[in-house]
Write a protein that binds this DNA or RNA. Structure first.
Lengths: 193, 193
DNA sequence: CGTCTATTTGAATGTACTCAAAAGCGGTGG
DNA sequence: CCACCGCTTTTGAGTACATTCAAATAGACG
């Protein structure tokens, strides 16, 4: 598997030597997922955090009524997984599923201690990753609280102009926190303008 | 100022010697805020992260229409501040305000490098703090997306049974993402049962 | 081509919102 | 100690937006 983008992603945040990167590669492994396969199912322990080399994924929660809620999409060069479960060892709340055939580089939670011991710099790298995830999550909460569904949809399109080519409308609706019917009506209204 | 709870908070997550803790104390400072005073105003740089020794606070965002949205409450032994601004150096989105007279221990962003250099273990401590913040934020997003306002209100009461003694109802409504009128009606309905 | 799923459309319903006004409560000064 | 003021909470009426349920249309895939 091509690890170029993975290395670049790390080097953007912390310095890393060839030797260190090779050590890192002994602690992670490639994983292919076919469309609809999952990295983790809700209720299981999330053993891996995945770096997406190719493809796109979604993590979602199924509520008491059986409705799915998309928590996050993952695109190339993003991390995905149930962070809570991975970090705490509790069962995952989310299912993390491939929306198309995907290539991941995955990191097992049992190797976290070894990783931080052998490559202390990675502690900072993961801190930065989590910071970014936190900031993104907070931005999303704010937009949910302070904007209309239409505004959120437009903001999403602005941020990811090609999202509708990759991701089904009902998944986008779920991410926005509305029903597919509601999104369909918003789209119709926007086209009419 | 009494730093016992602060030290305990750290020791729960990482080992720290007397000497290290004393070093840490040279890098932070106590700060008192009177009711309604702010640690940071939206639009300014958030220079400090605050550890709340005593009192309670809220961070909130004011949207285009002038409506305030409570992002987070901070109670004793919690951190508060605009993480995004603190970490990135961009202007804060939130105002972080004391809801009653407060005692904080604050950490200045310019001292972050020095802190991590002198006390490398703190890198892990802050990673854990951010992880927890992320997990909490995500849980909140999920509850906003998958539960009714009434369910969210009941869940909040369960988590913080005494919250209504400390925090005004309209702030709680704002935190729940509804208007004060809507919360008042939910409460009436619950009492009638 | 046929089947299954996704998307669109329609109609009725519901939840929370806005605007407006009344009631309640707490603190301050006379 | 009471009267007043400002702010919070409650209540009412009308409205907007998204939901639910149901059905029709469109697309994707074997």
């Amino acid at each position: 598997m091509d690890t170029t983008s993975y290395r670049k992603h790390i080097e953007k945040r912390i310095p890393i030597t060839d030797e260190e990167f090779n050590t890192l590669l002994t602690l992670v492994k490639p994983l292919s997922l076919k469309k609809k396969e999952a990295l983790v199912h809700a209720g299981e322990l999330c053993e891996y955090q995945g770096y997406i080399v190719k493809g796109c994924m979604r993590s979602y929660l199924t509520d008491q009524k059986g409705t799915e809620h998309v928590i996050q999409f993952g695109f190339e060069d993003w991390y995905i997984g149930d962070m809570m479960s991975f970090l705490t060892g509790k069962p995952a709340d989310y299912t993390v599923e491939a929306l198309e055939n995907c290539e991941l580089i995955v990191f097992h939670r049992n190797q976290a201690d070894e990783l931080y011991e052998k490559l202390p710099g990675m502690e900072r790298y993961f801190r930065i990753m989590i910071q970014n995830a936190f900031i993104a999550m907070q931005a999303r909460l704010i937009s949910t609280m302070s904007q209309s569904a239409e505004q959120r949809y437009l903001a999403l399109l602005e941020k990811f102009p090609k999202i509708e080519l990759q991701i089904a409308q009902h998944h986008i609706a779920s991410y926005l926190g509305i029903t597919p019917e509601a999104l369909s009506r918003i789209r119709r209204k926007l086209v009419q303008k």
